[in-house]
């Protein structure tokens, strides 16, 4: 290497080629790894899962049903007057994830939410009569003790966010489409 061109700092052309070659190899390895990493993302057929339409007529006031959308449970609750009142009153309570009840429903009578606890993904209890509904009259997650209110908002426990509201529209007064 004695004959290679050398500048004042003792850096040779060969040093530059070494650094450039290593850098190019790292970039190349990264590019080659991407298709492998990306192959683990949801496949096209999974993404294409259609939306779900639900007929609401059989649901009585104060009753809840659970439907499956994209492999996840969706809670649909026809709330009683008292529950709606309570949810609105709680707008002023101290909420870990501030949100108005009015922003969580399209029609106050119908609460539609993804029934998955925002903590670690368990299904909260409170859908069936007789199940514990937590200290705020909504839902209670038995896994790590998160309490949700009558608007599905987190009130106490480790969950960071309110129960998620999926995209849905009312096709008519008694039918909704989720997704």
């Amino acid at each position: 290497m004695a004959d290679s061109a050398q500048d004042d700092d003792g850096v040779t052309r060969r040093d530059f080629f070494n650094v450039a070659a290593v850098a190019a190899s790292v970039v190349g390895a990264g590019l080659a790894a991407w298709p492998l990493i990306n192959s683990m993302n949801p496949a096209a057929d999974v993404l294409a899962l259609s939306s779900t339409e639900i007929d609401l007529t059989p649901i009585e006031v104060g009753q809840s049903i659970t439907v499956v959308w994209r492999g996840k449970p969706v809670f649909i609750r026809r709330r009683t007057e008292a529950e709606i009142e309570q949810a609105r009153a709680d707008d002023k309570a101290s909420l870990p994830d501030q949100e108005l009840d009015a922003d969580r429903v399209q029609n106050p009578e119908w609460l539609v939410m993804v029934g998955i606890c925002t903590h670690l993904g368990c299904i909260p209890l409170g859908q069936k009569a007789g199940e514990p509904r937590g200290d705020f009259g909504g839902w209670f997650c038995p896994c790590h003790g998160s309490h949700y209110d009558t608007s599905g908002r987190i009130r106490r426990g480790p969950a960071p966010r309110n129960l998620e509201i999926p995209e849905y529209i009312f096709l008519d007064d008694t039918t909704i489409r989720i997704g």
Binding site: N41, V46, L49, G71, L120, G121, C122, C143
Partner: peptide
């Protein structure tokens, strides 16, 4: 449910948590 709870640990990562969880699942659950 063990798989659900443990993979959901990754959703706690700020900003990219949900994308990572979906990537781990290869689906939406």
């Amino acid at each position: 449910w063990a798989a659900t709870v443990i993979t959901n640990l990754f959703s706690a990562i700020p900003w990219v948590g949900d994308s990572i969880t979906i990537w781990l699942w290869g689906g939406f659950s």
